[in-house]
Design a protein around this nucleic acid. Structure first.
Lengths: 201, 201
DNA sequence: AATAGAACTTGCCAAAAGACAAGAAATGAA
DNA sequence: TTCATTTCTTGTCTTTTGGCAAGTTCTATT
């Protein structure tokens, strides 16, 4: 089994305990696909036929607002799932693009294969359901952030929980993802640094 | 079959086509439960053992911010699902309360029963997965609203898409759900009325 | 290595929303 | 029906964020 598949096996078992043989069987329906920086994994307005496990790299999803400007919806790091859920599961056109921000290594599975696994392997459908629940929880946490945190607090939260994003994701995408302009993010970052400096003296 | 179950059958078939016998079999594992205004359907910090289909009435979910103030996360109207997804499916304590804002009629199913259906009825697991995908999409839409709409635009959107909420949900809950204070919502509503008056003259 | 373009920062002013207080209106309890 | 409590609105001032421009820094291309 390839190192990428080993990573996937551990990921699967972390989310739904099952014996090694079963996890390997599930991992076996995934196939490697690599992407270069700026490649598009999933295209807006097309039905998405793949569900990706991101082994290495960073991906963002984005759509456009009414002014035609890009709006970053998700920032996805390694050991996470990349999928346009409605498009993939309901066979409808995707509402967003998914773009590689760095070179990426993924394991992907097609809808046909995932359907077969879903109906024939009890452990897989438990695992799959767990993934969907996780996606909902993550979205809900994001909503809570927007409801009750200022942009500064959302930025501080991101710095604390996902500091690696700052090294690999352009600030303009981070700003968009946080729901503010790049100008505002610059000011928040400056004040954050100044505040930390004051705390130390 | 009760009128509530008839509603549920139509709802199920709208989300995943299946023949009547199968839909009735699925609906048969749901049981009626009524709630009075202000009753709590799902309790924060407890593992939730029920998944509800809301036949009639309005429900909100809420948690608390660090100041101890209530923050309304969801507003749920009839013909929708009421469920604390992580608590129900992963058997962990709920992160929010779900409260009846009006008298409610629901059909509920326990985790044990839903598990059995999930593994024995292919149509049910397709339906169930469709529900989870819908929940994700709805959360994502809310995300997008926070990222790229002003509070005024989010309010206008809500007025357009769910006008019934204005009749049945206290404005302070609406404001919280929209991520603003009741004071700000009052001003937005006043300006909205004035703007509509200007358009007509 | 040089240059063009993109990303990021800073300056200045405006708009949106919050905080707090006070008052009006609506609702619930007695 | 009356009164207490809650909800909602309005006033005033503050804070947060946006818009736009200009400049600096970084990255990509030649």
């Amino acid at each position: 089994m390839s190192p990428l598949h080993e990573t996937l096996i551990r990921f699967i078992q972390a989310h739904f305990p099952m014996d090694d043989d079963r996890a390997k069987e599930i991992a076996g329906i995934f196939h490697e696909q690599h992407f270069l920086k700026n490649d598009i994994l999933i295209h807006e307005n097309k039905v998405s036929d793949h569900y990706y496990f991101l082994c290495a790299g960073y991906v963002r999803s984005y759509t456009h607002n009414w002014q035609g400007e890009e709006v970053t919806l998700q920032l996805i790091s390694a050991n996470k799932v990349v999928c346009e859920l409605a498009s993939f599961f309901k066979r409808i056109p995707a509402q967003a693009n998914f773009q590689a921000l760095t070179a990426c290594m993924t394991l992907r599975v097609s809808f046909t294969d995932i359907q077969k696994a879903f109906h024939t392997m009890p452990e897989f459908r438990e695992f799959g359901r767990s993934m969907l629940v996780n996606a909902c929880v993550e979205m809900q946490q994001r909503n809570i952030g927007f409801i009750q945190e200022t942009a500064e607090e959302r930025y501080a939260n991101l710095v604390e929980t996902q500091p690696d994003l700052l090294q690999h994701v352009p600030l303009k995408y981070l700003a968009s993802y946080l729901g503010i302009t790049d100008t505002s993010l610059s000011r928040i970052r400056k004040e954050s640094v100044e505040r930390e400096r004051k705390v130390r003296t």
